[in-house]
Structure formats: structure tokens, C-alpha cells
Simulated assay, not measured.
Amino acid sequence: MIGFYNYSVILTYLSLISSVFGMTQAIHGRFKIAVFCLALSGLCDMFDGKIARSMKNRTEDEKSFGIQIDSLCDVVCFGVFPAMICYLLGVRGPVGLVIIALYCVNSVIRLAYFNVMEMKGALVSEEGEKYYKGLPITSMAVVLPLVFMIQFFVSDFVFVICLHLALLVVGTLFVVNFRFKKPKNSTLAVLVAVVASALCIMLLRTRYRIEFRHGWPWLPWLRKL
């Protein structure tokens, strides 16, 4: 079989599987499960690099393979998947479709740029500290669950506007040329705690208020399966 098979990419594959499953749930209108799957993909992505670096005997080909696999999976997990959720929740019409297209295009541009810079070792400062250029694509795994919580406090119209703004702002920041240090473990722990709290409230304490939004003629039929 072609490819490289070792434990260094297991979490990356699990992240992809979670997002693909989340897509099937979003199509059926089960948005809570879909958002949960997105957050789970983000959690997997948070630690996949650490697991990969723990494998000290990787060849250069295996390292390059890991970089490419990570980016390809990120396109699905944090590019296409969030855009799909937002579309099904109401990001529609000419403006909505332009925003979705911009978000997806910028996510691909960012990942391609990151691959080039990573292979050149250009994302390390003179002090040896790693940093991000632009907003990481995985940020949507934090932003969307928090935005999803807004629906329980505002009208449906305001909620859909928030979805438009979230996609537009986050997608734009993917390619804006600014940099900041990669967060420390303590900061990551806080982010995980915040998102986990939002997910618990969403799953256990609330009901759907956003009705399933029919996007294509076959969706009502598919939902009955």
C-alpha cells in the first residue's frame, strides 16, 4: 500500500473521521452533534503535532507526509465542515455564498502557505520561538461552538447575522499578515475548558431553537432516513 503508516498521524485521521461524521449529522439537521464533532476535531488537532514530534525516528519523507496529511485533513475539518454547518443554518443568498466562498478559498491559501513556510523552517523567530502568521484555521473549532451558543439568547435573524460575521472575520484573518506566539499549554487548557463548558451547556441544558433549514430538494427526504 502507498503511504506511511505509524502512530504519528492517528489523531489527524481521527479528526477527519469526526468531521466527516459531523457532516452527516449536519445534513440531517442534528447541529448540536455536528458542532460537537467540530470541537472534537479541534481537540485532536491540538495534540496531533505533539504526538508526531514524539516519534523521534521519523524519516524526512514521513515528516513531509505528516505535514501534507495534516493540511489536507484541515481543509475538510476546519474549511469545508464549518462552512457547511453555517450554510445549513442559514448563511445563504448572494452575500452568504460569497462569504462561504471567501472563507473556503482563504483557508486553502493559508494551508498552502503554511506548508511552504513549514518546510522552509520559516515560522520560527530569531529567538527560536514558533509563531503563527495569520489566524490558525483550527480557530473555527473554538469560534463556531461559542457562536452557536448565541442562538439561545438572540433571535434567529441575529444568530444568522452572527454566523455571517464569524465566517467573514475568521476567514479574512486566515490571510491577514500578522503574527503571534503559539499559545502555551496553560492557554490551550483554558480554551479547552471554555469550549467544553459551552458544549456541555449546549448538549445538556438547551433544546434546538434553530429549525432545520432546507437547502436542497432532496434534504427533506434524506432527513427521514
Rank of each mutant, 00 (worst) to 15 (best):
G3Q: 00
F4I: 08
Y7D: 06
S8W: 01
V9T: 11
L11R: 00
L16W: 03
I17Y: 06
S19W: 03
V20I: 15
V20C: 15
V20A: 12
I27S: 06
G29V: 02
K32D: 12
A39G: 08
A39C: 04
L43C: 07
D45E: 02
M46Y: 08
R53D: 14
S54A: 14
M55S: 08
E60P: 02
E62H: 03
K63S: 03
S64Y: 13
S64A: 14
F65K: 11
Q68I: 01
Q68P: 03
D70V: 09
S71V: 01
L72Q: 00
D74W: 05
V76W: 00
G79R: 08
M84Y: 03
C86N: 10
C86M: 14
L89T: 10
L89P: 04
G90N: 01
V91K: 08
R92Q: 12
G96S: 02
I100P: 01
A101G: 09
A101L: 07
V105R: 01
V105N: 01
V105Y: 05
N106P: 05
L111N: 03
M117A: 13
M117H: 05
E126R: 07
E127S: 14
E127A: 12
Y132C: 09
Y132K: 13
G134Q: 09
I137C: 05
M140D: 06
M140C: 08
V142K: 01
M149N: 13
I150H: 11
F152H: 15
F153Y: 15
F153H: 15
V154M: 13
D156N: 12
V158R: 11
F159L: 05
L163G: 00
L167P: 05
L168C: 12
V169P: 09
V169N: 05
L173K: 02
L173H: 09
V176Q: 07
F178M: 09
K181C: 01
K182D: 07
K182E: 14
K184L: 04
N185I: 12
T187P: 07
V192R: 02
A193C: 09
A193P: 02
A198F: 05
C200K: 06
C200L: 11
L204I: 11
T206N: 14
R207S: 15
Y208S: 14
R209C: 09
I210S: 14
H214A: 14
H214T: 15
H214F: 02
G215I: 10
P217G: 04
L219D: 03
R223M: 08
L225V: 14
